[in-house]
Amino acid sequence: MRAVITVIGHDAIGILAKVSTRCSEYNANVIEVTQSVLQDVFAMIMLVDISNLSIPFAELSDNMSALGKDLSLSIHTMHEDIFNCMHHI
């Protein structure tokens, strides 16, 4: 089972570190990260393995959103199936 964490907002120092630290706290293994900064807008997409998650998925999603609020960023944590089903036949 894998999830996609997307982080969008103003660029700042340590965003990747803070999000990946939180992933490790919940035993979510980061598999792949892509990030770009365009005109100060930071966009990061992180693929994480959630097979051995230490908390329920819904809680992970809530906690990541809360982290986003603290950092003034928009963080979405979504199961990869929603993207696979929408964009692949």
Partner: peptide, 16 residues
């Protein structure tokens, strides 16, 4: 494989 465009499109559909 997932690509960034598809992921961001889905999020935009839901958010905006």
């Amino acid at each position: 494989m997932l690509n960034a465009y598809d992921i961001l499109e889905t999020i935009r559909m839901i958010q905006d």
